[in-house]
Computed example of a mutant assay.
Amino acid sequence: MISGFSRSGVAGILAGAALLATTAACGADAAQTTAGDKPAVVAAFYPLQWLTEQVGGSDVQVTGLTAPGVEPHDLELGIQQVAGIQNAALTVYIKGVQPAVDDAVAQDTSFDAATAVTTLPAGEHAEEEGHAEEEHAHEVSYDPHLWLDPARLATVATKLGERLAAADAAHAQAYRDRAAKTAAALEAVDKEFAAGLGTCRTKTLVTAHEAFGYLADRYRLKQVGVTLDPETEPSPARLSEVAKLAKAEGVTTIFTESLVSPKVAEVLANQVGAKTAVLDPLESKPSGDYLSAMRDNLKTLQTALGCTA
């Protein structure tokens, strides 16, 4: 549900937003445009915003729902944001990341990136944390962090180009051309990862939470997440289990992330005799962009896992 609101509160927000959207749409055509006559496109959080900006280019007006530095799972929507979603030509999101967005989107004007690719099942210990999962964003049976596989994101780029072309036929070819260019850039990063992680001393990736399943799957690594999600405190039994595995597999680095307290990772690192390093799950805007942040992640992984290209 939308954080901070009951189901009845959500209904009230949606009703109010619908009224605002209807008012804003009066006199507009079916394409739902901004004041500058460009289709209004809403992107749920950073990786999707970056992708939409690349594929949409100057032909759309992209609005991101999640501000930099905000954990996307914690997103709360105000009435104006919900109205923006309801009045957009397209909303780009991933079901299961942000329940607030899941509740607000309309099926005929939304693009769920998870439907564009083959998804992976939820984390390895999702069942033991089932209660936390119900209260958190992961309300789907699959792992929603698909943007951390650049090859999958390339597929999303291509399909997003088709959705934008269908919504704005006048610029259809431009969307397809930009989608192809974006997919090629993502495929180049994929090749860099495949080469850079081809030979590593260890293949075990110990992370603060299970955000890197797609990356691990793509490059034949083994993800061991301390928790399923960034807001759940691990049990002492889970910490002990991960510490034992990390020692057995010679893990030298425990990965943490910029938007989450490093305390748990530091405790685990002390138990293992390892160090910590930041591996960016790209849930918020980095200092550069998606491509540069992924390349920074590659360098971090190569150092931590003892890889030789």
Results as ranks from 00 to 15, higher is better:
P72R: 05
T227I: 10
P99W: 00
H171M: 05
D112L: 06
Y142A: 08
E128V: 13
V206G: 01
G130M: 11
L148A: 01
V70M: 12
A183T: 04
I79D: 10
D103G: 06
L197Q: 02
T308G: 13
F193I: 03
S6H: 09
L215R: 04
T23H: 15
E266Y: 13
V242H: 08
T207G: 00
Y290S: 00
E76P: 02
H138V: 05
V97N: 02
A15M: 09
N270W: 05
H73L: 15
A243Y: 01
Q271S: 12
L148G: 02
S287W: 13
K285H: 06
F111V: 01
E71N: 14
A172V: 09
V272E: 03
L205P: 02
T199Q: 11
D37V: 06
R201P: 00
E241T: 06
A31M: 05
D59K: 10
D296P: 07
K203D: 09
T23I: 11
K181W: 07
V260C: 08
E128F: 00
Q80G: 13
T118H: 09
L228G: 14
T207P: 01
L120C: 09
F5H: 06
T158Q: 14
A15F: 07
K285P: 02
H171R: 11
L282C: 07
V260E: 02
D296S: 14
E135A: 14
N270T: 15
K263S: 13
A165V: 09
Y46V: 09
A169I: 10
T232V: 11
Y219Q: 10
A35K: 14
V101H: 00
A122F: 07
A31K: 10
T256Q: 09
D102M: 09
A179R: 01
T303Q: 15
T34Y: 05
T303F: 03
Q32M: 15
D149H: 07
A309C: 06
A154I: 02
L298C: 06
S110V: 03
Q271T: 11
A243W: 05
L120S: 04
E257Y: 00
V101I: 14
K38C: 12
T33V: 12
I79F: 12
K38M: 14
A170I: 08
Q98M: 15
A179H: 01
D74K: 06
E249M: 08
Q32L: 15
L228H: 08
Y219P: 11
A265Y: 04
A265I: 04
A11T: 07
A246G: 08
R163P: 05
A216W: 00
L205S: 01
A43V: 05
F45L: 11
V156K: 00
A211Q: 05
A246F: 02
E134M: 15
G9I: 09
A179K: 01
